[in-house]
Design a protein around this nucleic acid. Sequence first.
DNA 1: GTCTATAATAAGATAGAC
DNA 2: GTCTATCTTATTATAGAC
Lengths: 208, 208
Amino acid sequence: MSTKLSFRQKVHLAREDAIVTAVKRLLADKGFDLMTVDEVAAEVGIAKASLYKHFPSKEALAAAAMVQVMDSALAESARLQADAGLDAGARLREITRWTLRTQLAGEMPTLPSENSSLRAALLAHEGYMTRLMDLSDRLGEWIVQAQADGTIDPALPPEVVLYTVFARACDPVVGFLKAGGRHDDAAIVEHVMRSCFGGLQTRPPSAA
Amino acid sequence: MSTKLSFRQKVHLAREDAIVTAVKRLLADKGFDLMTVDEVAAEVGIAKASLYKHFPSKEALAAAAMVQVMDSALAESARLQADAGLDAGARLREITRWTLRTQLAGEMPTLPSENSSLRAALLAHEGYMTRLMDLSDRLGEWIVQAQADGTIDPALPPEVVLYTVFARACDPVVGFLKAGGRHDDAAIVEHVMRSCFGGLQTRPPSAA
DNA sequence: GTCTATAATAAGATAGAC
DNA sequence: GTCTATCTTATTATAGAC
């Protein structure tokens, strides 16, 4: 890969980045089905036909946004991996916290529900699937390690833990609490973290 | 209310019930936005125009389905309330279990996401809102009682517990595990129950 | 590559006969 | 109340000039 880019190419990439940023925000706000390409064009400030010169379809638009989110998540996971002061359990908690903060910031596109034209497009999108598997592998290692360490319940199958962490990205509890207006963002994150990792039941005073 | 119904009225109600049943299934399967009125008509086996003689809009169709689900949930909560062998914590666990079983059976319509024409229709639907508030009140009493009993973590605000229980109705973990095919329905329910009430962290051997 | 204008299609809703 | 046929609107996508 050359790092030397012509002015034209830089402008091109900057525009595509502006488009993807708008798509991310709209996806987080309304979801794929309710987001219209007209809205995206309006938010970016260009004509709809110009959008289609950059991305061939609405699905490709959304996939590009999902790839960018995956890259953010992978970057965050790399930071946590590099932090030698954290054990596997702490890394899992911190990536979950990052997920909740990202959702609260309105930057977490809602994942595709089971039946959606987006779902098929994402499954066929090589870049997205590679990143999803990389992230799953890294979190999977943390989970197995944390279960060996005794910080994550070994009675839960690892995929249950993985899906539960992933699901925080679209946890409706976050939105409900935000809409209620009785808690600030930090409190919402801590409440959801406590219910997720500690459970709803009362915990006996921990030996640890 | 008279219990005496003419034959015509009975046929009318039976048809409306068939419609609502189809809508419930399609809502659980595809969600509101992806469900089309044509599909509903096809599944019931009548013409679309006939549907509109029974329900004035797609939103009214979905609202009728949501009311029926709420009635099921209220009936289940009444059964649990009447069971003197259960304390508040056990009732909360059992209503959550019922929610998960209903979702696995394909009978739990997905709740409206934040931005949807359905959301506004439901907020304006008196029958739905009354039932939602009745159910929230009953679960709210259970939560406060369970926190006083020490079976639910008193550090969590009651509304966090309430929303967390409600959110099991659309927990994507259930669908992921089902799609994975490595667990039967009963195992899925138990894994999600354990992660929800016990938390992802290892629990020290309980004193209780 | 950007624009305006325009297909092409899908889906909610209705008209009018029976 | 049920049907067929149709209207209306919203939305994805493209044509063609510059």
